[in-house]
Design a protein around this nucleic acid. Sequence first.
DNA 1: TAGATTGTTAATCGATTAACAATC
DNA 2: TAGATTGTTAATCGATTAACAATC
Lengths: 222, 222
Amino acid sequence: MMVESIEHIPEGVIERLPVYLNVAIQLRQGGVATVSSARLGGLCRVNPAQIRRDLTHFGSFGRPGIGYEVSYLVDELQRILGSDHTHRIVLVGAGNLGSAIASYDGLRKHGFLVAAVFDNDPRRIGTRVGGVEVRDISALEHVVRAQKISIGVVAVPPEAAQEVTDRLAAAGIRVVLNYTPVMVQVPDGVTLHNTDPVQELLHTLYYLSAREEGAGRPVGSS
Amino acid sequence: MMVESIEHIPEGVIERLPVYLNVAIQLRQGGVATVSSARLGGLCRVNPAQIRRDLTHFGSFGRPGIGYEVSYLVDELQRILGSDHTHRIVLVGAGNLGSAIASYDGLRKHGFLVAAVFDNDPRRIGTRVGGVEVRDISALEHVVRAQKISIGVVAVPPEAAQEVTDRLAAAGIRVVLNYTPVMVQVPDGVTLHNTDPVQELLHTLYYLSAREEGAGRPVGSS
DNA sequence: TAGATTGTTAATCGATTAACAATC
DNA sequence: TAGATTGTTAATCGATTAACAATC
C-alpha cells in the first residue's frame, strides 16, 4: 500500500488494471458479490496467477478460500487508477470522431467530464456535441488554465495534430490522447498516448493473413 | 522470409509494425528516400536495436552503412501486415462512433473498404455514413457471406455487443474489432481485438495521479 | 579508405507462470 | 475438519538492449 510510491510498477500491470475494473463493474452490475482470480481471469483472458500478482503491487484485496469482494475490488481499482474522482477533459476537434467521444457514455461512468470542446471551423462553433457547446480554438489556452484541465484529447485532422498538441502542452495539459495517425512530439512531463483506430486494424490484419486455416490466435485486449 | 511460417513471432513485434509503417508512410510523403534505424526509432519512440531486431523476423530490408529505403520499407511492411491489398470490412452500429469510423480517412489509405454498414434503428436505416447506405441488421449474415467479408467492427451499445459478435462469428467473420467496454466471447478461430476509448484514458490516468510532480513517464504508442 | 549502419549474437532485464504454504 | 483460494516465492520464459563483425 505505501509501497506504491517506491516500487516501480510495470506498464503491463497498469494496462491490465482498467480491464479488471471494467469486468468487476460488470460483475457488480450483475449482482455478483465475490469473484475468484480464476473466474476473473476467464472473463478478462488473463492468467489467474497474473491477476493476483498484479494486485499485490498495490496491497492485498482478497481473502484466501473466498476470493475478492467485487465492490471492494471496484473501489480499490478506481482509487489506484484515480478514477474515483472527476477529471475534466478538453476535447479538440468536433468532427465525427470528436462528437463520438464527447457523447460516449462510458466517459461519465468513469468520472470523466468533457469540460470544453474546441474547433476552428466556424460552421461547428456554437453547435453542441455531447451537451457541450463547441468554442473557437482561440480560447483554448484561456479555458484550460482557468478550469485547470489536465487531460486533452486530440481528434483533429492529421495536419493539425502537432500544433494542437503543442498548444495543449503549453497551456499546462499533462496527459494527451492522440486520436491521429501522426506521431506527435510532446515535451517532458507530458504523457502521450496514441490511439489510431486503423493501427489496431492493421495489427489484427496480420493474424488474418498469417494464419490462414490455422487455429485462431486471439489478440489480447488493450 | 520463408521463416515467416515457421518461427513464432512475438505479439509485441506485430504491434509495432503498424507504427513503423505509419511513420515510414509519413517519411515517404515528406520525400525522404532513406532512413536509419536510429532516426526511425526517434520518430517511433522505439529503441533502434529493437527495430532492426523486429524486422529481421521477416527478412533483411536494410543496407549496412545506408539504412532502409523508405518506399521499399513501406511496401514490405504492407506486404507483411497484409495491407497491400483491399480488405472489406463490415460495420455494425451507425451511431456517432460508427459514423466516425465509416468516414475515417485513414481506412482507405490502408486498403480498408467499408463494404456494408448495419443498424437496427429504423431512423438510421436508409441514411448514409461515409458514403455507404445503412442497412437493416437482419441482412447481416447474408451480406457477410455473399461478399465474403472477414473483418467486422462492433460499434453498438454495450448490451448488444455479445449478440452482434455472435452473429458476426456465425456468419464467418474471422476478425472482430470490439469498440465496446464489454468483454465479448468469441469462438476459436476468430481473432478479437478490444478498443475501449475510455480504457485508454483510465490507463493514462494512472500516470497522472501516481506521478504528481515527477518527470513525465511517456506511455508507448499502441 | 573512413564512416556509417546494418543484421545478429550474447547478455541483461523483466514479466509470466507454476507451485505451495498460509488462511479463510 | 476439508475444500477453496489467496499472497508470494522461485523457476521459466521471453523480450529488450548492447555490442560488434560484416558490409555498404
